[in-house]
Computed example of a mutant assay.
Amino acid sequence: MRITLVRHALLPLLAAFVLAGCHGKDDPTQPGGSTPVASVQSSVELLKKGDLAGLWKHALPPADYATLRADWSKRDPNQPPITEQDRARFNETLQKFTAPDAEQKLYAELEPKLTQMEQQYKDQLPVLISMGDALVKRGIAQNTTLDAQQKTQANAVVDVLAPWAQKTPWFDQAKAKQAVHVAVTTVRQLDLKSPEALRAMDFDTAMKKYAIGYAGAKQLLAIYGLSVDDTLDSIKLSELENKDGHARVKIDYTLLGKPLSTETAMVEVDGRWYSESMLKNARQSHQQHEDNAAAAPAPAPAGSAAHTD
């Protein structure tokens, strides 16, 4: 259930609100917003603070938020069991980042690889990124969940990110050393103990871990010249439409110095405004959980054993 929620709700939520700004006057600790614009503003305020638990509480109606929390710790019947190989790989990776000399060892391992990769791929990198650009745009064109306007907006973002990726000094040793420091610090802050503990996290614990990961990801992007906070600070919001409990909010923003815009649909529930796509995704995830639970075979009664006549 947790994997389903992250894939179908949390990631679209972050993608939608990473482009909004923080100028609202609503109380972000309350569910929804008094207006469509205020709802988006409060969500971004929470996102910029890295308060993902608060973001969920604000972005869903109380009943849906309660369902999210209740579903979170329920075991997904389709999730494969953890094997000894999984456990060994997890522990090996964790040890690399948590050992006392982790930064020195990781950078010592990375440094010659960066030199080798720079020699082999420096001239080819712009071409490879252009190929990746084309693949991403093809994926956008083939995406059946995006409408024509959303595809245009997504392509505009790609057109800004591709030149940045081509010019970014990915093989710079000093930046790589900073990145290793951020990665090691982030993993240590996550304080992961075992794959079993990772799966067993309750909602509040998971949100704290995700917030740590989100903060680390922002630091890594900033090292290479992409500031998420600068983008959040650049936003200007305006209401395009508001009728019969549905609204559209326009989001003008600057990404890497380039002006862009997008829109987000909002829906009114019990007098408060919420992201339509986020609410839809959360409810679909709950329904999928219910369907999986109904389809799962019932466990055998304790102490039961097969017998023959």
Rank of each mutant, 00 (worst) to 15 (best):
N155H: 07
D230P: 02
G303N: 03
W273Q: 01
R2N: 08
L237E: 14
M201V: 04
Q173G: 08
Q116S: 15
L198E: 06
T231R: 13
A88F: 09
D309K: 15
T186R: 02
F203L: 01
D76T: 00
D64I: 10
P12L: 03
Q142S: 14
K250N: 15
T67C: 07
A265N: 10
V269N: 11
V184K: 03
L125Q: 13
D51W: 01
G24W: 07
A156Q: 09
S285T: 14
V18Y: 14
E109M: 03
L226D: 09
A222H: 11
Q119E: 14
K122N: 05
V182G: 00
L198A: 10
F171V: 04
D230A: 13
L240P: 11
R199T: 09
S285H: 04
M1G: 12
L255F: 01
L226H: 10
P126H: 01
N155E: 09
L5Q: 15
T308E: 15
L255T: 00
P36L: 05
N155Y: 02
N91A: 14
L220C: 02
Y210Q: 06
P195E: 01
T264M: 03
D86E: 07
L190M: 04
M117A: 15
S238G: 04
P81S: 08
I251P: 02
P81K: 03
V37D: 10
A134H: 10
Y224Q: 03
S130W: 10
A306S: 11
Q173P: 07
E239I: 08
A156P: 01
T262R: 13
S234D: 06
P163I: 02
Y214T: 05
P299Y: 01
T67N: 09
L260S: 01
D27N: 12
Q288N: 10
A108D: 06
D270N: 15
